[in-house]
Amino acid sequence: NQASVVANQLIPINTALTLVMMRSEVVTPVGIPAEDIPRLVSMQVSRAVPLGTTLMPDMVKGYA
């Protein structure tokens, strides 16, 4: 089972991601792979992401 990136806190719209905002977790459906966490740092979210939400490619500007 592949771990995905999950929000560790509420991430407001247009916030630049930092390591403390993200954790890896095995979830369904699968989201952005956990190994991409270093690449996500400083990228902005395109919408508010609630705590515990799996990050999907369309939620991060410039990821897809």
Rank of each mutant, 00 (worst) to 15 (best):
I32L: 08
V5W: 01
A34K: 08
G31T: 01
I11K: 00
V27C: 04
M43D: 03
A16L: 08
R39H: 07
M21G: 03
P33V: 10
V45I: 07
V27R: 12
V45G: 01
V27Q: 05
E25P: 01
T18I: 05
T28Q: 09
N14A: 10
T18P: 00
P29Y: 04
D58V: 09
P33K: 09
R23Y: 05
A7W: 02
K61L: 12
P29W: 03
E25L: 07
D58W: 11
E25H: 08
M21D: 06
T53C: 04
E25V: 09
T18S: 12
L55R: 00
K61P: 12
P57F: 08
R23M: 06
L19D: 11
Q44N: 08
V45Q: 00
G62S: 08
V26A: 13
Q44H: 09
V49N: 02
S24W: 06
N14V: 03
K61Q: 12
N14K: 06
V30C: 04
V60S: 01
M56V: 12
K61D: 11
N14M: 09
N1R: 08
A64H: 15
L51Y: 11
V26E: 06
I32S: 01
I13T: 12
L55F: 12
L19F: 15
E25Y: 06
L40T: 01
P57R: 07
L40Q: 00
L10S: 13
T18V: 06
G52D: 10
L19M: 09
S42C: 04
P38D: 11
M59V: 10
V26S: 12
D36H: 14
P33A: 11
S4V: 02
I37D: 00
R23V: 05
V20E: 13
M59E: 03
V49S: 02
V20F: 12
T28F: 10
A7K: 01
N8G: 12
V49F: 03
E35H: 14
V26H: 12
P50H: 11
I32P: 00
N8V: 08
M56R: 15
P12R: 09
M22D: 01
L51Q: 07
V6Y: 02
P38I: 10
A64M: 15
A16Q: 12
R39T: 15
A64Q: 15
V41R: 06
V26L: 10
V20I: 09
I13R: 10
T15A: 09
D36S: 13
P50C: 04
A3I: 09
I11R: 00
V41W: 03
N8E: 08
I11H: 01
E35P: 09
P12V: 06
R39K: 10
I13K: 12
G52Q: 04
M56H: 10
V5S: 03
N14L: 06
V27L: 08
K61G: 07
D58A: 13
M22C: 03
D58K: 12
V5Y: 00
L17C: 02
T53S: 09
S42R: 13
M22V: 08
S4Y: 03
G52L: 04
